[in-house]
C-alpha cells in the first residue's frame, strides 16, 4: 500500500522517538504543472531513509541530500526546483513545473 500523508507524519514521529534524526520537507508552492500538491510531505531520517514524496521522483534525491545538511545544521531552508533552475538538466522537473519546498529539522 502507498503511504498517505497520515502515515508519513506518523512515521516521522516514530523515527524521532526511536532516536533517529529527522527532517520534514513540505511542498509550499507550485507553479505550472507540478506532480504533487501543496502540502505534500517527504520525511527523511539521518541515514537518508525517506518516505513520501514532493515530486514524481524527480527531485527527491536532491531533497534527501539537503535534508542531511539541515539535520546537521539544525535550521530550516527553502529549496526551489524547476526548469528555470540552472541545474535543470541535472535535477529538475521534467514536467516543466516549478516547486518550492520547505525543509526543516524535527527537534
Amino acid at each position: 500500500m502507498f503511504a498517505n500523508e497520515e502515515d508519513i507524519l506518523k512515521q516521522a514521529e516514530k523515527w524521532k522517538h526511536e532516536g533517529r534524526e529527522v527532517a520534514i520537507a513540505t511542498v509550499v508552492e507550485t507553479w505550472g504543472s507540478a506532480p504533487r500538491p501543496v502540502g505534500s510531505h517527504l520525511v527523511i531520517d539521518g541515514e537518508g531513509n525517506f518516505l513520501g514524496s514532493v515530486s514524481g521522483g524527480c527531485v527527491e534525491g536532491a531533497v534527501v541530500t539537503e535534508a542531511l545538511e539541515v539535520i546537521d545544521e539544525g535550521s530550516p531552508r527553502m529549496l526551489e526546483f524547476g526548469v528555470a533552475d540552472e541545474t535543470a538538466w541535472k535535477v529538475g522537473l521534467s514536467c516543466g513545473g516549478r516547486i518550492r519546498v520547505y525543509l526543516e529539522p524535527l527537534d
Binding site: 507524519l9 514521529e13 524521532k16 520534514i24 526543516e104 527537534d107
Partner: peptide, 14 residues
C-alpha cells in the same frame, strides 16, 4: 518543527 507539535498533529488526526 518541534516534536511536540508533530505529536499533537498526529493526535488530532487520530
Amino acid at each position: 518543527m518541534k516534536l511536540d507539535i508533530l505529536a499533537a498533529m498526529n493526535a488530532e488526526r487520530a
